[in-house]
Amino acid sequence: MSLTLEQVQRIAHLARVEVSESEALATQGQLNGIFELIEQMQAVDTRGVEPMAHAQDLSQRLRDDAVTEADRRAAYQSVAPETEAGLYLVPKVIE
């Protein structure tokens, strides 16, 4: 299989990465090269094989319900691009 230019643009939009026409074209070529490599997997019969999502076969550990974090807004917002009145500012959100 190979990706079309439209597919490249669609996934770039899903990933919120702006790509120009020419970048999309170059990316298309590279991605198709990589997918050629990836396609080797398709020949393998994996029926009945349990997918492995983690490097360990363990279960989730749980924490007690307790407040352990103090207010550090000033420190956290000191690295923010734009804040006002304790809020992070972004271009207008339209619902």
Binding site: A15, R16, V17, E18, V19, V79, A80, P81, V90, P91
Partner: peptide, 22 residues
């Protein structure tokens, strides 16, 4: 939004995301 680089120029929210990340 909360830290790191933000593109110097952008239009709407999606454009801010896409340019910042590009």
């Amino acid at each position: 939004v909360r830290y790191g680089y933000r593109a110097p120029e952008y239009g709407n929210l999606d454009d801010m995301y896409a340019k910042t990340r590009a």
